[in-house]
Simulated assay, not measured.
Amino acid sequence: MSTRLVLVNAIYLKAPWEEPFEKTLTARGAFRRADGSTVPADLMRRPDVGARLTSGEGWRAVTLPYAGRRLAMTVVLPDDTDDDGAGAGLAGVERRLAADGLAVFTPTEDGGETTAVDLTLPRWTFRTAAPLREVLAGLGMPTAFTDAADFTPMTEEDLDLVVSEVLHQAFVAVDEEGTEAAAATAVVMTETSAPLTEAFVVDRPFLFVVHDVAHGAPLFVGRVIDPTA
């Protein structure tokens, strides 16, 4: 079997935070994995970042805008794991995600007021790959992967084309400046008052969504089980 056609769909994001983290505040700290063990991770800190906080049964979320405030990242932090360290908190949030969709976690432009948050967030980089053939067949398009497929409108030659594989790969890097190691930074000047802040410490497995602010449409969705892996 020879490859005759490859279709590629790509999305790339390189965005600085609206309020970047100070690199001098990044320090090593314990990140507790789902099995109860801990690993030393680079934990970024912003004592007074402007963000939106939301919460629901078994979870809290913080939404951080990127420069320009058209895109944002929402980090969904489950309540602590069960006593057996089985990671039931994260599993419960993922079940809620599967049942109700992302809109539960991602506020839009009218989704609440910005507040001052004392945020601690791990720095992480990961690359993941996933074959989607079985997933797409299960979602209702099995014919494309069989000899019954008909792709004749896509070619002028007398070829019997069939989809042999669908591969998905994602790369995400988050650091003090933004996502995908953005070189640009945004400088925000505010009054030198000291508002009350709410602590939000991300030191255990969590979900993240990079999304459009106006409509909540997701660009990237993922989970971080171990930011050092």
Rank of each mutant, 00 (worst) to 15 (best):
1 M>G: 10
2 S>D: 12
2 S>M: 08
3 T>N: 11
3 T>V: 15
4 R>V: 15
4 R>D: 13
4 R>T: 13
5 L>Y: 11
5 L>K: 14
5 L>M: 15
5 L>S: 10
6 V>W: 00
7 L>K: 07
7 L>W: 04
8 V>D: 04
12 Y>F: 13
13 L>P: 06
14 K>A: 06
15 A>H: 05
19 E>G: 02
19 E>K: 06
21 F>M: 08
22 E>F: 12
23 K>P: 08
27 A>E: 11
29 G>M: 02
31 F>C: 09
33 R>E: 09
33 R>S: 03
36 G>M: 02
36 G>A: 03
36 G>C: 05
36 G>L: 04
39 V>D: 01
39 V>F: 01
40 P>F: 06
40 P>G: 05
41 A>K: 01
43 L>Q: 11
43 L>Y: 07
47 P>G: 01
47 P>Q: 01
48 D>S: 13
48 D>W: 04
51 A>V: 13
51 A>H: 03
51 A>W: 04
51 A>M: 12
54 T>V: 03
59 W>R: 03
61 A>T: 09
61 A>M: 06
63 T>S: 12
64 L>K: 00
67 A>V: 04
68 G>Y: 01
69 R>V: 00
72 A>R: 03
72 A>P: 01
73 M>G: 04
75 V>L: 13
79 D>K: 00
80 D>M: 05
81 T>P: 10
82 D>H: 02
82 D>P: 01
84 D>T: 03
84 D>R: 13
87 G>D: 01
88 A>S: 13
90 L>T: 02
90 L>H: 00
92 G>P: 01
92 G>L: 02
94 E>L: 14
94 E>S: 05
98 A>C: 02
99 A>H: 09
100 D>T: 11
102 L>M: 02
103 A>L: 12
105 F>L: 06
107 P>C: 00
107 P>F: 01
111 G>T: 05
119 L>P: 06
120 T>S: 12
122 P>W: 00
124 W>P: 04
124 W>M: 15
125 T>I: 12
126 F>Y: 15
131 P>M: 06
136 L>T: 08
136 L>V: 14
136 L>E: 13
137 A>N: 05
138 G>I: 09
140 G>P: 09
144 A>Y: 06
144 A>C: 10
145 F>N: 03
146 T>K: 00
148 A>N: 09
150 D>C: 07
153 P>M: 00
154 M>E: 08
158 D>H: 08
158 D>S: 03
159 L>W: 07
160 D>H: 12
166 V>E: 03
169 Q>I: 13
171 F>A: 09
172 V>T: 07
174 V>K: 03
175 D>P: 07
178 G>N: 05
179 T>L: 13
179 T>K: 02
179 T>C: 08
181 A>L: 10
185 T>I: 14
187 V>W: 12
194 A>T: 15
195 P>K: 02
199 A>C: 10
200 F>K: 10
202 V>Y: 09
203 D>V: 06
206 F>R: 11
206 F>N: 11
206 F>T: 14
210 V>I: 15
214 A>S: 13
217 A>W: 06
217 A>Q: 06
218 P>Y: 02
222 G>D: 08
223 R>I: 13
226 D>P: 06
228 T>N: 03
